Amino acid sequence: MARTARKYAKGASKDVERAMKKRKAGTLKSGGPGRKVKSRKQAIAIGLSEARREGKKVPARKSAKSSAKKSAKKSSKSASKTSTKKTTKKTTKKKSSKKN
């Protein structure tokens, strides 16, 4: 049985664990103004970003840019499918027959 490599370093999981404990204690702060972190997901993100800054093995962040490209691609595909079904309307000119 082959062992698979770890995606996250052990030190990275320690950083996340520390961030989670700080959040639970109510001392984890975020951003410039230093607002308290209430979200579990935000606490994990803070722990992972700190681990990245320290150079620990952590997978790269999923960028918003790539997810926006994917959604734009999907919407353009669906738009192109609907635009090909154009109905053409034949216009016939009625001859006006004026009786003198």
Rank of each mutant, 00 (worst) to 15 (best):
A2R: 03
A2N: 03
R3F: 09
T4L: 10
R6C: 07
Y8V: 05
K10N: 11
K14G: 06
D15N: 06
D15I: 00
V16I: 03
R18T: 01
M20I: 01
K21G: 02
R23Y: 03
K24S: 13
A25N: 11
T27K: 15
T27E: 15
T27R: 13
G32Q: 15
G32Y: 15
P33K: 15
G34H: 08
R35H: 13
R35G: 06
K38R: 14
K38S: 04
S39V: 09
R40G: 12
Q42D: 02
Q42C: 09
A43R: 00
A45C: 04
A45T: 06
I46F: 03
L48F: 01
L48E: 00
L48C: 04
S49P: 03
E50R: 05
E50T: 00
R52E: 02
R52Q: 08
R53M: 10
K57F: 02
P59L: 03
S63R: 06
S63L: 11
A64L: 10
A64T: 09
K65E: 07
S66P: 07
S67Q: 05
S67E: 05
A68D: 12
K69Q: 03
A72M: 12
A72Q: 14
S75T: 12
S76L: 12
S76H: 10
K77I: 15
S78C: 11
S78P: 04
S80P: 11
S80L: 09
K81R: 12
T82S: 14
T82W: 11
T84S: 11
K85C: 08
K86G: 13
T87V: 14
K90W: 10
K90E: 08
S96D: 02
S97R: 13
K98P: 04
K98W: 13
